[in-house]
Design a protein around this nucleic acid. Structure first.
Length: 491
RNA sequence: GGUUCCUUGGCCGAGUGGCUAGGCAGCGGUCUGCAAAACCGUGUACGGCGGUUCGACUCCGCCAGGAACCUCCA
C-alpha cells in the first residue's frame, strides 16, 4: 500500500489507489482552456498540476496518453439573452477579427506560456471545432436513448428524465430537487423544459458566425459536449483519469457524466481530479472578476500589483509548493520566497555536481529518496516532496563543507535522484537569470574589469576595487566574490 | 438561501490523536579588507468556547471570520 500511487477521487471523496484500466497504460483527459483571452495564473496552476501528474505517471512507468482539448467554439455568454453571443464571437467583433483568428492568437499565446512554464505538451490536443461530427453523433445517440429533446432547432439534455434512472449531481454533491428549488426563479419562457436542462446543440442566431450545419439546424454544439465526445474518441468509452479545475465540477463535469452515461449506458471516467483555485487577496482570481494577472504580465512584472517580474520557474515552483487541492493565495511576498527557495535548490544541484565520493556514507540517501517518493505517491503531495528535497539540500551543503561524507555509490544515486525528481518529475529547469550569451563584448568587458579589480584587491587598493564593484552594480551587474575569483550576473 | 470547504508561528505553506514539516523573512555565527552572496545554527504555532480522551492543533458540537460552487471560468 505504501508504495502505491494514491489519488483523491472527487467522485468518491476518498483517496484511492490508482489502478489503470489497462495494466501499464494510463489515459488522462484534462479540460483545456477556452482561447478567447490571455492565459493567466489560474491556467498555470491547472496545467502545472496535471503536468505533474503526467510526468509522475510517466515516471512510474505508465505509457500515458494525455489528451487536453482546446475549446475554440465559444459557448454562449448568456443563454437566456435573445442576442446570445459567444465569447469568441464577441471578442472577434470587438477586435475586428475572424473568430478563428482570435482562437489562433490566444492559442499561440497559451502554447508559448505553457512552454515557458515547462509544461509538456499533451499527446493529443483536440479542438472542439474539429470534432463537430463526433459531437453530433453523440447527440444522436443521446436522442435515440431518449435523454434529449428537440426544441426550436436546438437539442437539450433532459436532466429530469436522466435523473430518474441515474444520479444527476453525484459528482458535485447536489440533488436535483435542490437545483430545482434554487433555480426556479430564473425560469422564463425558455425553449427548455426545465431551466437546468443544458444544450447539446444550439441553433445559431443570425449574427452568430461560428456555425455548422446539422439535421436540426445550423448551429453549434453545447459546451459540455466536446469533452465527452473527444475523450471517447481518443481514450475510449471508459478511461482512467479526468482532470480540471474545481470550478468545472458543476455544471461542466456533472454534465459530462450525464452525457456519457446517457449515450453509452455507463460512466466514462474512473478517477476525477480537480485542482483548487488561486486567490488574490483571499478572493478567487478570474477573468470575470477582473482581478486576474496574465502570465505575460507575471513574467515581465508589468502589472500594478506586481513588485517585480517573476520567472516562469518561480511561478512553477510557487505552485508546486502548495498542494494542488488547496487554494493558494497570491502575494509578492510569497512569490519572492519561492524565488529564493528555488534558487537555493538549484544552487545545491550545481554543488551536487561538483561533489566527490568518499569511502563511506554518513548520510542516508535511500531514506531521503523514499520519503520524497512516498510524498508524491500520496496524492501528489509536491510540497512535502519539496520539503524533503530541501532536507537534501542541507545534506548536499554539509557534504560540500566536509561535515558529512558520502560513498561513491550513494553519490551516484543522489545525483540521479535529484535529476529525476527536480527535472523530470517536478519539471523545473535551469533558468539563466539574464542571458549574456551572444554578447561576447559585454562578457569580455565585464570579465576584464573584474580582473582589474582582482589586481587592485591584491594590491590592497580597496578604493579602486570598491569603485569597480559599485559602479558595475549600478549598471546592473551583480558581483559575487568567490574563494578563487569572482562570479557575476546581470540583475 | 442551498451544497462543500477553510482558519496553523512575521509571511507562505504541509501534516499528525502523544514524536522538529519545509520555504522566505528575522536573529546569531562562519567566510570576507569591507560588503554582497553562500553556508551553518535558531523560533515551538495551530480562530473562540465547550465536549470525547490518560492525552487534541489533530475527533465531535456550537460560535466567529473567510472562501468556492449553485451563471461563463483553471
Amino acid at each position: 500500500m505504501e508504495n502505491q500511487f494514491v489519488i483523491y477521487n472527487t467522485i468518491s471523496r476518498k483517496k484511492e489507489v490508482f489502478e489503470p484500466l489497462v495494466p501499464g497504460k494510463a489515459g488522462l483527459y484534462v479540460c483545456g482552456p477556452t482561447v478567447y483571452s490571455n492565459s493567466h495564473l489560474g491556467h498555470a496552476r491547472a496545467y502545472i498540476t496535471f503536468d505533474l501528474l503526467f510526468r509522475y505517471l510517466t515516471h512510474l512507468g505508465y505509457k500515458v496518453r494525455y489528451v487536453r482539448n482546446i475549446t475554440d467554439v465559444g459557448h454562449l455568454e448568456d443563454e437566456e439573452e435573445e442576442t446570445g453571443e459567444d465569447k469568441i464571437t464577441k471578442k472577434a467583433r470587438l477586435e475586428k477579427l475572424e473568430p478563428m483568428e482570435v482562437v489562433q492568437m490566444y492559442m499561440n499565446t497559451f502554447h508559448r506560456n505553457m512552454d515557458e512554464l515547462n509544461v509538456i505538451r499533451p499527446s493529443i490536443e483536440p479542438r472542439a471545432s474539429g470534432h463537430i461530427i463526433e459531437q453530433q453523433e453523440m447527440i444522436e445517440s443521446i436522442l435515440e436513448n431518449g435523454y434529449a429533446y428537440e426544441s426550436n432547432g436546438s437539442i437539450y439534455f433532459d436532466v429530469e428524465k436522466y435523473n430518474k434512472e441515474y444520479n444527476y449531481g453525484k459528482l458535485s454533491g447536489r440533488n436535483l430537487e435542490d437545483i430545482k428549488t434554487n433555480t426556479r426563479v430564473l425560469d422564463g419562457q425558455s425553449e427548455k423544459k426545465n431551466s437546468f436542462d443544458f444544450a447539446l446543440w444550439k441553433k445559431a442566431t443570425p449574427e452568430h458566425i461560428m456555425r455548422w450545419p446539422s439535421k436540426w439546424s445550423d448551429g453549434f454544439p453545447g459546451w459540455h459536449l466536446e469533452c465527452s465526445a473527444m475523450s471517447t474518441k481518443y481514450l475510449g468509452e471508459q478511461f482512467d483519469i479526468h482532470g480540471g479545475g474545481m470550478d468545472l465540477r458543476f455544471p461542466h463535469h456533472e454534465c459530462e457524466i450525464a452525457q456519457s452515461t446517457a449515450s453509452q449506458g455507463k460512466e466514462a471516467v474512473r478517477y476525477w481530479m480537480h485542482n483548487n483555485m488561486i486567490t488574490i487577496n483571499g478572493q478567487k482570481m478570474a477573468r470575470s472578476l477582473g482581478n486576474f494577472i496574465t502570465l505575460d504580465e507575471l513574467f515581465t512584472g508589468n502589472h500594478e500589483v506586481l513588485e517585480q517580474a517573476y520567472s516562469p520557474m518561480t511561478i512553477r515552483f510557487f505552485i508546486l509548493q502548495a498542494h494542488y487541492r488547496s487554494t493558494i493565495d497570491f502575494s509578492n511576498e510569497a512569490l519572492q520566497a519561492s524565488e529564493k527557495g528555488l534558487e537555493r535548490l538549484m544552487t545545491a544541484l550545481k554543488t551536487l555536481d561538483k561533489l566527490t565520493g568518499s569511502k563511506q556514507s554518513t548520510v542516508n540517501v535511500s531514506e531521503l529518496k523514499e520519503n520524497c517518493l512516498a510524498a508524491l505517491n500520496d496524492d501528489m503531495n509536491s510540497p512535502i516532496a519539496i520539503a524533503h528535497l530541501f532536507e537534501g539540500v542541507k545534506m548536499i551543503n554539509s557534504l560540500k563543507a566536509g561535515n558529512e561524507t558520502i560513498s561513491g555509490e550513494d553519490l551516484k544515486e543522489l545525483k540521479a535522484f535529484y535529476e529525476t525528481a527536480v527535472f523530470d518529475i517536478l519539471g523545473l529547469k535551469e533558468e539563466n537569470s539574464k542571458n549574456t550569451q551572444g554578447n561576447e563584448v559585454l562578457e569580455g568587458a565585464v570579465d576584464l574589469l573584474l580582473k582589474l579589480r582582482q589586481e587592485a584587491k591584491a594590491n590592497k587598493d580597496w578604493g579602486t576595487a570598491d569603485k569597480i564593484r559599485n559602479e558595475l552594480n549600478e549598471l546592473g551587474v551583480e558581483i559575487k566574490d568567490t574563494k578563487d575569483g569572482f562570479e557575476w550576473s546581470l540583475k
